[in-house]
Design a binder for these strands. Structure first.
Lengths: 295, 295
DNA sequence: CCGACCCATACGTTTTCGGTATGCCAATGG
DNA sequence: CCATTGGCATACCGAAAACGTATGGGTCGG
């Protein structure tokens, strides 16, 4: 069975005439007549009553017409929807983000996205450092806002910004009275550390920073997230060396101070699978760049 | 665009593999692969991600799949529905009936119909003597229960029963005390007459009955319906010579008595357009015969 | 490094479709 | 009563599309 036959059938039913329908379909009358008869023989019953002045639907024909025209509309809508999704004007975009960036970026990013791609369903998911790669690879998120960027052969990275490191401490810490903290003063102080990049602890930006200044800070605790780090800092367990934007989500009682002489920063990046070719990714990247610009 | 392509697409999407889908479709793998690529080029975007272990839908493919499978189901249901309507197991049957027959037949006919053709929507309409032909000819009713039968070249008639004539009179009429009324006693009595068959008054069954018995009854009134006739009879305007089943709908105060020596009767018939070939008509005829049998 | 698996491409064959010419039937009009 | 018109059906031919077989070219697993 062929959708062309159904299309022809609907045309004839609506025109109530083979000739008129043929004209509208830009084809000759005889082949249309043949197709209609083929459809009838396929169904095993006449769909039209042939009168001397055109064709008229039988009851069977009416039953078919209702479904066929709906099916045609659905099929057309299907290919239209596929095109729209491919073009990025419809569809779904799953955005993953690391929680440290939420306060700094989402309030600007989300309205920007809704304005740029109004037909697209947005879907946000918080990512942890340990699962973000897997979530990209298994496509449960399409793009990820990461800090720092992901390094993986299958994952494409676009750096959209950076955050300087700041020293996080309880407000009652002596350093809190300083406008900025010289690196040298950190010597020997306890550090609340985040997980280093997998399999290469020395590549951590914080580790590199300390090494370059020849500072040694004993690791008081290792925690998974920036927020856990801040909790321990607040509890007096040690200092945090954290991206500046983390202060937007910091609990009361924590203060951030610049590190004097330290220009190191940590990248903010948009990451996606190399084989995801959705145009939504480009659009998302543009929006994310706008949202990150004021930082 | 061809529904075959959509069918192939759905098969491949469900099998997640061209080869498997080809097997299920009983065709070779290469042409299926070609068709899928043609569909993709028609849409202008890839619908599948080709992996080393089969195919996987892209977002555009998912958008299409949802609509396409629904459209396929609808199209299949459409041809199925058309077949079912043609076979008489689904559809709609518009039944016209003359009101004289309603009390006598519908209580048995309707349950019989619902049992015989449960998938068919029934639709009942009362017919008047003057419009019943038109209602059949313009197909606003499919079958009609008539008394007497319709005679028309385009209309097919099946006699399913007959009703003897009875004399209808007010209960206070002297004849009401008789068990039956001899024809001779009607001489000169006023008659409430019904409309004669169009253009041939002498062919009326009542006229023929009176003529054969050489009785003359002056026509006190001509009315359109049996019920109107009974109203006038009750009002004392004259006698009615009416089909026996009319007494089932007679108002209080009217009695019916057999006409002695008169074996004349009036046909009950099922009528339909000659060019209506719905199998529902046969089924309806069977049911009507059953429903009329006890009369 | 080789075989297995799976999709893509190429080419010849067959089916199907569409166009033109024409026939048939009924209704209309002189 | 016959001719004309309008509409659908049939016949035949050329063109296009689809199918099958053979084959190529990747990747994965042993």
């Amino acid at each position: 069975m062929d959708i062309r036959r159904l299309r022809y059938f609907v045309a004839v039913a609506e025109a109530r005439s083979v000739g008129k329908a043929a004209e509208r379909l830009r084809m000759a009358q005889p082949p249309l007549s043949v197709q209609i008869r083929k459809l009838e023989s396929e169904i095993g019953a006449p769909l039209f009553r042939r009168g001397t002045r055109g064709m008229d639907l039988t009851e069977a024909g009416q039953a078919l017409l209702a479904r066929a025209s709906e099916a045609l509309a659905l099929a057309a809508d299907g290919i239209e929807a596929a095109r729209a999704v491919a073009a990025g004007s419809r569809g779904r975009l799953s955005v993953g983000y690391m929680f440290v960036l939420a306060n700094a970026m989402l309030p600007r990013l989300i309205p920007e996205l809704r304005r740029s791609i109004p037909g697209v369903d947005l879907d946000f998911a918080e990512l942890s450092a340990s699962t973000r790669e897997a979530r990209l690879l298994d496509r449960s998120v399409t793009v990820a806002l990461c800090m720092p960027a992901i390094h993986h052969p299958e994952i494409q990275v676009a750096r959209i910004g950076a955050q300087p490191f700041m020293l996080a401490m309880p407000i009652r810490s002596p350093f809190a009275r300083l406008g900025s903290v010289p690196m040298a003063r950190l010597q020997g102080r306890p550090l609340i550390a985040l997980p280093p990049p997998e399999r290469d602890p020395s590549s951590s930006a914080v580790a590199a920073l300390l090494r370059r200044h020849q500072i040694v800070m004993p690791i008081a605790s290792r925690v998974e997230t920036v927020h856990s780090a801040m909790s321990l800092v607040l509890a007096g367990e040690g200092f945090g060396i954290l991206p500046a934007c983390a202060r937007l989500g910091a609990p009361r009682g924590i203060v951030f101070r610049p590190l004097r002489d330290a220009t190191d920063s940590i990248d903010i990046a948009v990451c996606w699978r190399r084989d995801s070719h959705s145009p939504l990714i480009r659009t998302f990247l543009k929006c994310a760049e706008k949202a990150v610009a004021p930082l």
